[in-house]
């Protein structure tokens, strides 16, 4: 059963927690562009370290909590290292130093080097992802999208209502699987099970939409703001530090 994550007060009161989600998103995308622009290990490591520091320092994400969210990416990073090394374009280079050879397999040093950097890139991206997710509440994201990015209210808050339905959908799934077992059908999965889950999701959406309209969601008048989003000092701070980290990364490149 899925429980929506509850960020603790320290995370929300941290500079990362107080900054607008859009600021964090912009910095994250700028870093992503920086990471993609190079296969040099040094800028990659700079942004990897910066991401971890942003989460645990500026975001006050407890180290254990950060690690739990981040460590699963070691597997994904390992996969990326593997494919880029084994299937590396550089392996075709006759001049490259071979470190492993057998049958059709020929692994060269430059391919491994590229693979390792790309693995680090995954860990850096994951670090940024955890820093973002562990300091951002869904409501704050919806508010910022509406008030700062001028996205239409109905879509942002419709999405927020759907996000709220996630625990219920996961409970539906658990119950449907139990129901399968009590009908003598075993513990497995079936297409019917997943379809039943989607049916419940759609029916829930139908009821939710009705309840939202009953409260004037589609009244057609401009909505007012219970939680006004303002630009804060923290936004400037995160943007400045984000730009600085990116600058250091660029300078660190050869």
């Amino acid at each position: 059963m899925i429980v929506l994550p509850e960020l603790d007060v320290r995370q929300l009161a941290s500079p990362m927690g107080r900054a607008s989600p859009l600021t964090k998103l912009a910095v994250g995308l700028a870093w992503l562009a920086g990471l993609v622009a190079t296969t040099d290990p040094r800028p990659t490591v700079v942004l990897l370290v910066a991401g971890v520091a942003a989460a645990t320092g500026l975001g006050r994400v407890p180290v254990g909590r950060f690690a739990r969210a981040w460590l699963p990416f070691v597997v994904a990073a390992g996969g990326v290292v593997l494919v880029n090394t084994v299937f590396g374009a550089a392996n075709a280079d006759a001049a490259a130093r071979v470190i492993l050879e057998g049958g059709p397999l020929r692994v060269t040093e430059p391919a491994l080097a590229t693979g390792l950097v790309l693995g680090l890139r995954i860990l850096a991206i994951a670090g940024v992802g955890v820093a973002f997710a562990q300091t951002t509440e869904a409501t704050a994201l919806a508010d910022a999208l509406v008030q700062q990015a001028r996205l239409p209210d109905r879509f942002a808050y419709g999405a927020l209502a759907a996000y709220q339905a996630v625990p219920r959908l996961s409970l539906d799934l658990v119950t449907l699987r139990e129901a399968r077992r009590t009908r003598g059908l075993g513990r497995g999965w079936s297409a019917g099970l997943l379809l039943a889950l989607l049916v419940l999701a759609l029916r829930h959406a139908e009821r939710l939409a009705l309840a939202m309209d009953a409260r004037g969601f589609d009244a057609g008048i401009p909505r007012s703001r219970f939680r006004p989003v303002r630009r804060r000092r923290e936004d400037a701070l995160i943007a400045a530090l984000g730009a600085a980290a990116l600058a250091v990364a660029i300078l660190a490149a050869r």
Binding site: T139, Q164, M212, A219
Partner: peptide, 15 residues
């Protein structure tokens, strides 16, 4: 609709 109780009450007022 909303994550927190007070925001949920305010939802209809915002609308």
């Amino acid at each position: 609709v909303m994550e927190r109780v007070d925001d949920d009450v305010a939802f209809g007022l915002e609308n």
